[in-house]
Design a protein around this nucleic acid. Structure first.
Lengths: 219, 219, 219, 219
DNA sequence: TATGAATGAGTCTTCATTCAT
DNA sequence: AATGAATGAAGACTCATTCAT
């Protein structure tokens, strides 16, 4: 990481190899994510990652200290954007919570549809036993942030009388769970999709989750 | 596996070490599951598995041909019970679909609360990139079976006018997703639980999922 | 080292592979000393050491944790005997210090004539910059012990009026230095010997050095 | 070495970087000696040497063909002066051999007290197994030269009746050995000095050694 | 059945060396 | 003359697997 920082922070002085060296860390990270996803952290070979990133075996070590450091950098690098999204939309949409939730769901679904994006949480899941710290990092920086954002939206919706008086945490669970399930089904189990476009999934999701299953309302 | 069959079928001739030998494959499988869960398939050492199962390094090979064979046997061995459950309850509960769904949810939640049980799907997720056949096996023998059972229950409920006319698949997704999410949160991310007893989770789950989020019913 | 201890301490229970496994650590140590002496610690390859000891690459790691651990064990294993010698003779010869000194010199010279024996101090010298702890260990456990033994002999000789009243430390230096020099000349510089038998060297050594120390002049 | 010659012979055309380029080989040699002494030849990294000499990794190769060439140049560069010294003093002091010996001893002791100076022989010792040619070179160009010079002095002293009729070679051994021993003690074993000033060591040395050699007893 | 010594293929990692700029 | 990104050979170390006992 120190290495990466050092390499990528020297933007001021003009270099001859500019494009290459500047872009390298990112290229390696991408290559690593692909290899890790395909083979798993342990089974992935550093040389394959290097080759995929367009350099030789030893080249990776110019940017990352070790395989584990590469993994760590990878997780941290890919985590930020996701978490930030959640926060921003949540704040922006306090005025119209239900609409904000819809926006968020739409964003989450379309992002999770991209294998590249889903690859990171998937990796974290696979490695959680061996590297609990990554799982913890992910929980703290991504899931809890998103959760808090969603809960406040739900709370707002309840306050406005737009939602029933339910446990916000349970609502969030009901909101995210199906999206997670669908992503697992698609990327991990490689099951076939039951709808033609993502839009259809979103629609279904809202239909069921926002409106409920039961025909007759008891409460 | 051929080995396993051979080993466990020799029940005729009584020997002094009978008990041990008979129980061995199961013991090894359990030990393997624990090691695999803690360290991951690759990082787990055969010797540690053997030690945990109470025999020596070479001993494991008397029952399983290789590490990969052990993994395969493990997944298959732990998969059956789950899938069967789903089928049984589904059939049994056709008369009262909503109640059957409740029973199923209750069963799923309490089972997933047990780390040992959740360990297998977790393992499958981690290895899905490297061994897609396991993921496929899991999808076919477990998830699709359960899904079909649930969908038929939902369809029955719709037919009886107890559920709105929604896409059964979407309903199932909404039904299972939150349970999966909670299990991930607990076992993978090691997040703290927001409720005291599993019973409370079940209650919340029903409250939200079965009755819906929206206060005002549009349809 | 823990490994070695564990392996060599199990002498009670009879094993089938007795000879081999019991003898292994010693065989490896010898092989390592030879390789280290010929090529130096860094340039020596573990596989060559293993091969020379009669096993395969990985075999060495059954007895020693790492190359460095092997080096450490080697130095410690070969150091003990030397130091003990010094102490024993020193105590035994308190009654006739000059004779004791002669015995010691004779022992030191003949031992240093053996390349295997001189190899260890030689190794320590070569590695002293990188592993100062080994040099310190050698100084403390070998040189200082020998030095103390010799000094007390010299002091005894002075007290008896057999040696002039000189600084014991200087006397010891004059006593050991030439022996060290000769060993260096022979083993390190591979210079030719100027005498036919070691006995001749001993004679010359006494002629010059003891003369420098003795109170009464004979010639 | 060819490179070094080429680089240092280009004195004709004055350039702006003149001073630097002219001094470079020497700077690199010094840096190399320090690194080699601290870490050993193998463990020393070319980049560290370069950095210490004030240039970058690749820069060293403008002056030396390889790491081994650098080592060779280093040993040769640092050897000359020592050997020449010996010869000069030896010839100059033929008239008063004992005094010449004293001068030589004094010179040797004070030179060996300097870690930089002792570093070269120390390096040669450590590498003698791997590069016997360096040891041979050192023996031929340094030790044998010095030895011859000293032996002729001793022979002269014997001829003049100032020394007893002893084997000159043994006398030289007795003369140099203690100095070598002291240097080893100080630099290699990092043992504490037993005297305050080098002068004191010289005094002690003469007291013991010259006594062993001298015909007439003074005390 | 069970053991654990032994093997050797497989990988990470280092670093001398090269070369475009 | 100088740089430092890049290469790739080399070597320490691990561990699944075998096999004599």
């Amino acid at each position: 990481m120190a290495k990466v920082a050092a390499a990528s922070s020297s933007k001021s002085a003009p270099r001859k190899w500019t494009r290459r060296a500047e872009a390298r860390p990112e290229e390696i990270l991408d290559a690593a994510l692909e290899e890790f996803t395909e083979k798993g952290f342990d089974a992935a070979r550093m040389e394959d990652i290097a080759r995929r990133a367009g350099l030789s075996k030893g080249g990776v070590y110019l940017y990352f200290d070790s395989k584990e450091a590469l993994l760590k950098a990878l997780i941290e690098a890919k985590i930020g954007p996701i978490a930030q999204n959640a926060q921003l939309i949540a704040q922006a949409g306090a005025a119209d919570p239900i609409n904000a939730l819809k926006l968020l769901a739409r964003a989450a679904i379309s992002r999770f549809a991209d294998p590249k994006v889903f690859a990171v949480p998937r990796l974290v899941v696979g490695l959680s036993g061996r590297f609990p710290e990554f799982a913890a990092h992910y929980r703290t920086h991504v899931v809890e942030v998103a959760r808090a954002a969603l809960e406040s939206l739900v709370a707002a919706a309840i306050a406005r009388g737009e939602f029933r008086d339910i446990e916000p945490r349970a609502a969030v669970r009901a909101f995210i769970g199906p999206i997670l399930f669908e992503a697992m089904w698609t990327h991990v189990l490689r099951g076939e999709s039951a709808f033609d476009t993502p839009e259809k999934l979103i629609e279904q999701h809202f239909d069921v989750v926002l409106h409920g299953l039961a025909k007759e309302r008891t409460s």
